[in-house]
Design a protein around this nucleic acid. Structure first.
Lengths: 274, 274
DNA sequence: GCTTGACTCTCCCCTGACGGGAGGCCGTAA
DNA sequence: TTACGGCCTCCCGTCAGGGGAGAGTCAAGC
């Protein structure tokens, strides 16, 4: 006979757990001193405790375990096993989805972070063509949130990149701007009111802007300065890629927003043909 | 502004959940009528609710979500995401182990069940060689439980079949029986006090016995009758395979025990050579 | 203005599988 | 005699809500 403490060491179950299993009629001590209330377990119960631990490892609930231990190993055993198997598998499936979504999320965050660390200067680079779903709006910029929301609801898991805005205006308009909210997608799929197409690639100048959106004009000034110096001719629409901003989920801190301005250009006209 | 019921329909969150989120400072209504205590939500909170639902789908706890929503999307965001990713993955791994164990368990139960349904008569069949780990005992049969326990603890996941007993006696011994408890294993592995070897295959007579062990003698009588009728010569050790019995986990009901008696034999001497 | 029915409020208890701790009993060693 | 260790019961807390009681509120129909 073992006291509860000794039995606890033998079975790796805590004293609390043993008392709880007693209360739940799952592992009843072989004898209980009627005076002191002390629980005493015998050797055969070590095996039983091991079985319970094993079944807990199979993710059975205590009430299932009670049922299993009292069952005579008949047909119901197989039924219970299969039910449990299905339940655990579906839970795994659910968690698997979460893991994949988390991985995607982490990937994007890492990208945004590495983007945010690169140089803070005007650069030339080549853009590859990009398949996007877009909604064109004439009005206020504040309406773009609604457009991004609509696209992301329509395309869900087909989304594959950071949101961007195409600006068709050549000057700044407050109330009557002409712009298009776009999200990169993996697959063609037609949705009412959404334009799906491939944005052209090509040579562009790019500047990564760090800070709130109302300071964007400074970065625009720098990038146009660069274009003018080289007599490059900016093509509309210009693009703003929101590497880090108020996403679907987090508002974030405007000081930490990271936006990339991309302007495709035609090379200088006169001497570039050689 | 939406009442809590309307907002509940918009967000697919129950009223109870919304009140709970309010209490937890996770989704605070835009305004609360100071007289009636009624909660009123505005349109922007639909997005927030959607974000919370999404994060719940990623298996974040509510306190993590509160932290995430209040964070400014800085470095800690990536840390929290990675922590969560690791946690969910390890949970999946754990559940995966449970699923595999359950599958093995179900397989064995199915086998036992189909075995139990086949004919209840003496049969001849061929046995294939079988790798086993065994402990030989001279004493009482009641000691075999301990031996099975020891083997299964030593070989754990290498086990791959039903327990069996080899009887080296040619008559029945009560107190001084000579027998060996064996468990089929997948892999050679030496353990002190355990004999690992391949049991030979060959032609045998087999009889499936249904019922408690103290009725085994009736089945033995039938199988030896069969052997004698054909002048087959029984080889020792004879085998008892416990298709369904008091396992590591369930005691089960002795009336439902299923045991297969296997006796390898040498064919009759005189006429069988043709 | 009144009633009715639908809606909402707060408050309390319930889940599962324990963990933490308070306060008390018992036996033994210093 | 006191201290200590082991054991007991009882109560509360976890997490993310669910269920229900009893009371107050809102809007529509009469």
């Amino acid at each position: 006979m073992f006291s509860i403490g000794e039995f606890s060491k033998l079975t790796q179950l805590t004293v609390k757990t043993l008392r709880f299993y007693h209360e739940q009629d799952i592992l009843v001590p072989a004898c209980v001193d009627p005076d002191s209330g002390y629980r005493y377990y015998d050797a055969s119960q070590v095996e039983l405790a091991r079985a319970i631990t094993y079944l807990r490892g199979l993710e059975f609930s205590l009430s299932d375990i009670r049922e299993l231990l009292q069952s005579d190993g008949g047909d119901d055993l197989l039924t219970i096993l299969e039910r449990q198997h299905a339940a655990v598998k579906s839970r795994i499936k659910q968690l698997g989805k979460a893991v994949r979504a988390l991985e995607q999320f982490i990937l994007e965050e890492r990208q945004a972070k590495s983007m945010a660390q690169i140089i803070n200067d005007v650069q030339e680079k080549d853009l590859t063509p990009l398949l996007v779903a877009g909604i064109r709006i004439k009005g206020r910029y504040s309406e773009c949130g609604r457009a991004f929301g609509q696209i992301s609801r329509s395309y869900g898991r087909h989304l594959c990149g950071k949101p961007l805005l195409l600006h068709y205006d050549t000057e700044y308009h407050e109330a009557d701007a002409d712009f298009e909210a776009c999200l990169p997608i993996r697959q063609m799929k037609d949705v009412e009111g959404v334009s799906v197409r491939e944005l052209p690639g090509g040579r562009c100048v790019s500047l990564v802007h760090r800070g709130p959106y109302d300071e964007l004009s400074r970065s625009y000034a720098r990038i146009f300065q660069y274009l003018n110096d080289r007599k490059y001719q900016a093509l509309v629409p210009t693009r703003e890629v929101y590497l880090k901003g108020p996403g679907m989920i987090f508002k974030g801190n405007p000081k930490k927003y990271v936006t990339e301005i991309q302007i495709l250009f035609a090379p200088a006209v006169k001497s570039d043909r050689r």
